[in-house]
């Protein structure tokens, strides 16, 4: 048995659902193709982020002290919260897929809304963090000043970070370049995902998924989880470098 269509070809000329596209022989074939295609697309996404992870690995080894110092300017509270938020949104998305599979329209709408809300919270927190970087002159290229790493200020109630020498401090710009490139690309994926979520929400409210044609939701779920996975790696790599120091 070599081809997925073979078994279903003979005899099963049962009613085709209206949403089956003409060039597929069976619904199963259509569904499998869609999820396989989605996975291939996710592979391209892995490689897309892969370039930046390579860069990260190299520069982290070269400029470890700068990466530690850069990492310590990030708020661990905000970062952890965001991780939790994103994981939860992944969970609600998974629930959404389940609701769609079991044809629970209400549950689907609630799940999408929750996912959307959590996504917004994530982006909100992210923008707070970005704003903070802007204020602190830690945005590479546009607004960057390494002097805060040469003469670190002590936060009230906290010991000051150890100062960096000027040359190493200047290399924090590499860290922040990667920080913004990686989290920026991630956020861009989130924004695209949220656009799709709104699109799905409208269709769900109209009852477009009640007939069991939920390939779009399932594949969007894959996308959303992928975005989650990227963050799962970004969080320790960017936020958690040598917190004990």
């Amino acid at each position: 048995m070599d081809s997925p269509t073979a078994a279903l070809h003979e005899g099963t000329h049962a009613e085709h659902p209206s949403y089956q596209r003409h060039h597929f022989v069976t619904m199963a074939q259509q569904k499998e193709s869609a999820s396989f295609g989605m996975w291939l697309f996710l592979l391209t996404e892995i490689m897309f982020f892969g370039g930046m992870f390579t860069a990260y690995l190299i520069y982290r080894n070269w400029y470890y002290a700068a990466f530690v110092a850069g990492s310590h300017t990030l708020s661990i509270v905000l970062g952890t919260t965001n991780t939790a938020v994103l994981i939860t949104s992944s969970f609600t998305m998974a629930m959404g897929v389940w609701c769609a599979e079991t044809r629970r329209r209400g549950g689907l709408i609630v799940s999408i809304l929750l996912t959307l809300a959590l996504g917004l919270v994530f982006l909100g927190i992210k923008s707070v963090e970005y704003h903070e970087k802007w204020v602190q002159h830690h945005v590479p290229g546009l607004r960057f000043d390494a002097m805060t790493f040469v003469h670190p200020h002590a936060e009230p109630g906290q010991a000051a970070e150890p100062p960096l020498s000027l040359d190493m401090a200047e290399h924090t710009e590499v860290y922040f370049s990667l920080y913004f490139a990686m989290t920026g690309m991630h956020a861009l994926h989130m924004i695209i995902g949220m656009g799709l979520l709104i699109f799905m929400l409208i269709k769900a409210i109209r009852g477009a998924y009640d007939n069991g044609n939920i390939a779009f939701i399932e594949n969007f779920g894959l996308y959303w989880h992928f975005v989650d996975i990227v963050w799962i790696f970004l969080f320790p790599l960017l936020y958690l470098i040598s917190r004990h120091q």
Binding site: G141, H171, V174
Partner: peptide, 11 residues
């Protein structure tokens, strides 16, 4: 914007 991933002057 001048990020410094490939720029030798920025490391």
């Amino acid at each position: 914007i001048g990020i410094g991933v490939f720029d030798p002057t920025k490391g």
